[in-house]
Amino acid sequence: MQPSKPTPPRGRGIASNPRNRFEQTEYIPEPDSGIHDPNNKVQTRYFEDHTSDIISRNNSPDIPFSVGVNPYRGCEHGCVYCYARPTHEYLGFSSGLDFETKIMFKPKAPELLRKALGSRRWKPEPIAMSGVTDPYQPVERSLKITRGCLEVICAARQPVALITKNALIQRDIDLLAELAKWQCVVVNISITTLDSRLGRLMEPRTASPRQRLETVSKLRAAEIPVGVMIAPVIPGLNDEEIPSIIESAASAGALWFNTVPIRLPYSVKDVFRDWLQLNFPNKYEKIVSRIKDMRGGKLNDPNLRSRMRGEGIWPEQIKALRLLGLRRAKVVPYKATLTSEHFQPPESNGQMRMNFM
């Protein structure tokens, strides 16, 4: 049995800041600092990110997109398992509390995106929003950077794929419905559990399971292609819910369903283990053991051929549970597709450039 861990501040997923792997020094708060007081409220701080290029690219063979747009760095949702936490270390922050309380935002993202799509070097292909942190995290309600990007995307008829666990995406149904007319959008709603208590523990500042199902329903009512990502699947914690999630989401109108087993790169391993020990001490050994079983004896497997699937009996069980859910829900196979054939490159002044043959 592992030693008990401190309780996170109110409304936060993590109780501490693990050491940044790029830094030589580490900040350890005094015991009476209040940081581990569950009644203490840690305020979120926002910093402008003056990036000059909004398009990011990857060549990973196990990621289904090569181009991404991320309006934010860090994520206030505070999901304890988030594989993106270590990206905050590139900024000199920690992957713990810093990741969910120190948010970088890109106010010029729409302008930069318009410039990128208007460049003659741009070859139209689907853009993912966001491949790292959620484009609809709480501050988006006031900053509207994601909406600004979608306005540019909609005007250009640029194909886009979105993934979120926030009901705020309903605000942009007008733009998404217009994109859907041109076969230029697919949306994935992340649903990890139907248990509201577990959801609050794992994902403290996200929409409830009920709100996410309602979001699926409202997007589908607007004829927007919507699927569900059951990710991450944590063996021994939420894997048994896979059939129920599929049945509920299918009833709400979801068209496709994907599962991804939990990934714990770098310091996320420690963040997750601390959280697990605090909230589910009786399940700690079982869950950790099962994760190691599907990750070659370790808590993380960076191999590009297996990191999204895992290996061994537990990934096979996840697959079986998914198939069971599909059968129960009588899901008809559906393949989401995007097209660039209607793309209209914008000029830098926001007008559309005419194409002459």
Rank of each mutant, 00 (worst) to 15 (best):
S4L: 08
S4N: 11
T7R: 07
P8W: 00
P9L: 01
R10D: 05
G11R: 02
R12N: 03
R12S: 03
A15H: 04
A15N: 05
P18A: 04
P18W: 02
N20H: 09
F22M: 10
Q24K: 15
I28Y: 04
I28S: 08
P31V: 01
G34V: 08
D37I: 09
Y46A: 03
F47N: 05
D49E: 12
D53V: 12
N58Y: 06
P71D: 07
Y72P: 05
R73G: 03
E76T: 11
A84T: 02
R85S: 07
T87N: 09
H88Q: 15
D98H: 14
E100L: 03
M104V: 05
M104K: 14
K106N: 10
L112Y: 11
A116L: 05
G118R: 01
S119M: 02
R120W: 07
W122G: 05
P124I: 02
E125D: 09
P126Q: 06
I127P: 03
T133Q: 07
T133K: 06
S142F: 08
L143A: 11
R147E: 15
C149P: 09
L150P: 08
V152E: 13
Q158R: 10
Q158M: 13
Q158E: 14
P159V: 13
A161P: 01
A161H: 07
A161R: 11
I169V: 15
Q170I: 12
L175C: 10
V186R: 14
I191W: 00
T192V: 06
T193C: 07
R197K: 12
L198T: 07
G199H: 15
L201H: 05
T215I: 05
S217R: 15
L219F: 07
A221H: 10
A221S: 15
M229F: 11
V233S: 10
L237G: 08
E241G: 04
E247T: 11
A249W: 01
A250S: 05
L255T: 00
N258D: 12
I262R: 01
I262D: 00
I262T: 02
R263Y: 03
F272Y: 13
L276N: 03
P281C: 10
P281K: 13
V288W: 01
V288E: 14
S289A: 11
N300V: 00
P302I: 02
L304V: 06
S306I: 02
R309F: 11
W314Q: 12
L323R: 13
G325R: 01
R327S: 15
R328T: 03
R328N: 15
V331I: 14
Y334H: 14
T337I: 08
L338E: 03
H342L: 06
P346W: 01
M352S: 12
M352H: 02
R353C: 04
